[in-house]
Computed example of a mutant assay.
Amino acid sequence: MLSFKIRGWNAYTPGLESAESWGDWLQNKYILPTDAPKPGLKNIPLMLRRRFTTIGKYSVEAAMPILAENEHIPLVFASRHGDVELTLSLLQSIANNEPLSPTSFSLAVHNAISGLFSIARKDRSEATAISATENLIPFALLEAATQLQDNKQVLCIICESSLPDLYKPFASSPPFPYAIAMVLSREEGDTFHLKSAPSTVSEQGQNNELEELMALLLSHRNCARFPSTQDVEWTIER
């Protein structure tokens, strides 16, 4: 079992920009409006702002409110598929024998968002980018909590985008793109416990990973469960 504290957290997708709105969505599972205002990234210089793709902008909007001005903090950035729309466009260009955009290629790598975020904040702290087929949330928190051995605080950003129709038959994805940011701490905040054990269930529960984590952060329940196909169940408990 690995224990850590969460100093603060924030989640973002257009239309869900506060803990209250996330709690309401979690209870009612309503369809989000398509005309909700998009993130403005007002604190990011214009030339740099243009380089952030959708999930990158969501990541910034989620993380900035929980960070102090000029706070230098290590970052763990986690996403299952990364910027899949951008990656697909590059693959389509290759299939059509079209030249690749150097800018698009540089932004499609998995650590592009964490790099841009570090540049925007002028923060030279270490940044780690990870991916996982399943159990992305437990693995992201495992990496961030482990880094608390060397750091008092670690920023963990988990973001996902919905898969394009081409990929939907082959993998699951959330109903909408989102980003969740958490500051893990040795000393400040509520205590959580991350552990794994042999799975006692044969199927996934009704909630997806996003819903499990949000219910835990909002104190709707005291335990989030992340069963997998590897006969292991990860849990995060208060």
Rank of each mutant, 00 (worst) to 15 (best):
Y167V: 00
E187D: 13
P175A: 05
I137G: 06
H110S: 06
D150M: 14
T200Q: 15
P198M: 06
E134S: 03
D123T: 04
A132I: 00
A145W: 10
P175S: 06
P99D: 12
F105G: 01
A132V: 00
E143S: 05
L141V: 06
V183H: 00
L107W: 03
N151E: 10
I157H: 13
I158D: 11
A179F: 03
P175D: 03
A140R: 06
A179D: 01
Q153K: 15
F117Q: 09
L194M: 09
L141F: 08
P198R: 10
V201N: 09
L184V: 05
A145C: 11
P138G: 01
F117K: 02
G115R: 05
F170V: 01
L136T: 00
E143M: 05
L194R: 07
A171M: 11
E143Q: 08
V201R: 15
V109N: 07
G189F: 07
V154A: 12
A197D: 08
S93D: 07
E203S: 13
L90E: 05
S104R: 10
C159A: 14
L148Q: 05
Q149W: 10
S89R: 07
S173C: 10
Q153A: 15
L100N: 09
S172T: 11
K168D: 01
S118H: 03
A144L: 02
L116A: 01
L184S: 07
F192P: 02
L155G: 07
I113W: 02
T87Y: 13
L141C: 03
L194F: 07
S199D: 03
A171L: 11
L91V: 03
L155W: 10
D165F: 05
I137S: 03
L91P: 05
L107H: 05
N96I: 10
P198F: 03
F117T: 04
P99K: 15
I158H: 11
S202P: 05
N135F: 00
E98Y: 04
A144W: 00
G115Y: 12
A144E: 00
P169M: 14
R124H: 15
D165A: 13
G189W: 11
D190Q: 15
S104F: 02
N97I: 03
T87D: 09
L148T: 03
F192W: 03
I94A: 12
G189N: 08
F105L: 04
V201S: 14
S89Q: 10
P169S: 11
E126R: 14
N96T: 12
F117R: 05
V201A: 12
N97D: 13
L107P: 04
